[in-house]
Design a protein around this nucleic acid. Sequence first.
DNA 1: CTCCAGGCGCCTT
DNA 2: AAGGCGCATGGA
Length: 298
Amino acid sequence: MPAATSASRRDTTRLRWRVEDYDLDATLGCGQAFRWRRGAASWTGVVSGRWVRLRKEKHTLHAETATPHADWRWLAEYLQVDSDLAAILNTFPDDAPLRAAVAACRGLRLLRQEPWECLASFILSSTKQITQIRQIVELVCQRFGEPLPVPPVSAPAFSFPSPDRIARLSESELRACKMGFRAPHLLAAAGAVAEGRLDLQSLQTLPLPEAKERLMKLEGVGPKIADCVLLFACGFGQAFPVDVWVERALSKLYFRRRKATPRELREFAASHFGPNAGYAQQYLFHFIRTHGAQKLSG
DNA sequence: CTCCAGGCGCCTT
DNA sequence: AAGGCGCATGGA
């Protein structure tokens, strides 16, 4: 098979990128994605139905897969290795809270996630701690995902179940994954995507308000979860998810510790942070959760 | 034990 | 528009 031979010559299970300002721990651990597990010196996860191990070394990001690939664009896109973080940070307003957040979290990147996994995960996120979201997502994948090839000695890995797969499950099968009242929401969303009533791929081509409106037609998807999908999966850099942490951060840092109203928060977020408001949001979110205990309580 | 978690939907003011 | 409440489940 000569054709296959010439094609497979470039196939490899390892690749590396030269990167500046790429903090793998912050990026994979900040709560934007839920399937990454930190090992001694590397992170293991699943991207586009493929087992992946990542390791950062000085200015090099090392990737390893279980099966060979000639085309690695799926992972480069997910990791956003080609985005210019310095240019993004330069669009932030020059104020004290963001200076502190960038000083503490520089290298945190927004990933470009798969829309269905992102939507499903954030449907499961409401009033759950990040550790619990990870557990629920992991259970769903173990029970209903497809087993994936992994390297020798590695733990089993599973794909994130497709909309069709989840749409065929019963509500009680989902509730058994500890997702509680979110089970019917996930089931309905899976049905909408599986039957083509919601086209997730087309959202990125729409104006942000219309894309958000379509997501919010789903039961259990309000403005916050919609913004997460728009920002983390659809590439809308101005989407600005406001959860309890961001609400606290904005109130304390920009409203002189006064509890700002939802309207005030919306208008401030839309006017203050610029074209990469969503990036700024993630820096504030991660900063307040990791370094913010003292800054917040004082 | 209590409090709260990357919310939402519905109700009342 | 804003505030209150119930919703499942389990960390802290």
